[in-house]
Simulated assay, not measured.
Amino acid sequence: MRLRATPASASPAEHGEGPIWDAARSELVWVDITAGQVRRGRVEGDDVVDVAAHRGGDTVGFAVPAAAGGWLLGAGAGVSRLTEDGEAHVLVELTDEGGSESEGGTRMNDGACDRAGRFFGGTMAFDERTGGGTLYRLDLDGTVRTALDGLTVSNGIGWSPDDRTMYLSDSGAASVWAFDYDLDSGAMTDRRVLLDFSEDPDGVADGLTVDDEGCLWTALWGGAQVRRYSPAGELLAVVDVDAQNTTSCAFSGDLLVISTSVHGMSDEARAAQPDAGKLFTVRTGVTGPGAHPYRGPLGALSQV
């Protein structure tokens, strides 16, 4: 199946990423990484229109709703809270991360919460050096632990509808991995390659989402498309997007919302892709869940 997405009305981003459906607020939330912004929009038919934009930090890799109010952010090299009135507060700086771009530091890049309310956030080095990224898990007691290290560009995260499988993409490794997942403990085991993009001419896996039928939708950075795969890795559908750098996607009902970026593109490429940086939408015929909220404390967090 081949579909084509259309650009939405919401104003474009420099480095749009991480759309989620915030069901409690009936809003589409996404980020502009390099602008350090959290963006909020309203879905009107097949369109997304702007509601608000908030400053979240020097960089903001992703946002998830918080059950206690506001949003939890992967911002800079740590975790912050964004309140309902748009004030951002750092909750923890990760001690083995940080540093500026010029110092070869790292930043949070993508993340999500599981059904229990645990927060997973991954990092990448500004210079995208191999092994410079880490996946962290923020548990319901407010402690941050390393879930997986040795990553390069830790990216899209999702879970199967039965919560028994967790998916993680590493754009640097050009792979999407599947893990056995224990919802009671948050443990990830038995890592295996589900999708290998190392020989794919179209691009590498970026952000992803999982629909209600258990199929993965992954954006292809450099590929101007989003692909749908079965849990066994069979290609089922392709969504064409008039923007080279598709970064992630999320469902609002059966509407797939796709984020895109102009980060790193030449002036000529930007001119050739006037809608790059915008959100795009397409009706898919299948539905997907909203974002699970973080259900832990919003006071000071600690790293162990």
Rank of each mutant, 00 (worst) to 15 (best):
R295W: 02
P161H: 03
A291E: 08
F251N: 11
G98W: 12
V286F: 14
A68D: 03
A67I: 13
V210S: 06
A5G: 09
V241T: 07
R42T: 13
G18A: 10
D275F: 11
I20Y: 06
V60R: 04
T209L: 15
D267W: 02
T209M: 15
D206S: 13
A67C: 07
S248Y: 14
R40L: 09
E84C: 03
V241L: 05
F119G: 06
R283K: 01
V38Y: 04
L148K: 09
S80M: 04
T143D: 07
V193M: 14
L72D: 00
P19Q: 02
P12Y: 02
L151R: 05
V92K: 04
P293V: 00
V210P: 07
A125W: 06
A224R: 03
R55E: 14
A291P: 12
R81C: 06
D139A: 09
V31N: 00
N155E: 09
D254G: 03
D110H: 09
G76C: 04
G142S: 09
T143M: 08
L140C: 05
G111P: 12
R4Y: 05
G61K: 03
S252D: 14
I20G: 05
D196L: 10
Y167F: 13
D275K: 10
T247N: 06
L148I: 14
S26D: 15
D200S: 07
D180L: 02
E87R: 14
G285D: 01
D267Q: 05
S102M: 13
G214T: 01
M188L: 15
G223I: 12
V92G: 07
A52C: 02
S248K: 10
R283W: 04
A232L: 14
P7N: 04
D163Y: 00
A272E: 07
T106N: 08
G98Q: 02
A224H: 12
T260N: 07
T189L: 13
S248A: 15
G105A: 02
V238P: 04
T143Q: 14
D254M: 01
S230F: 14
A5W: 01
D196G: 05
D242K: 05
L255S: 07
W159R: 02
D47W: 06
G98M: 08
A77D: 06
N109V: 05
A205Y: 11
G264K: 02
D22M: 14
A232S: 15
F119C: 10
A10E: 08
A13Q: 02
L220N: 08
A8F: 01
S302C: 12
M265R: 00
T95C: 13
G233P: 09
T95S: 15
V48A: 11
G18T: 11
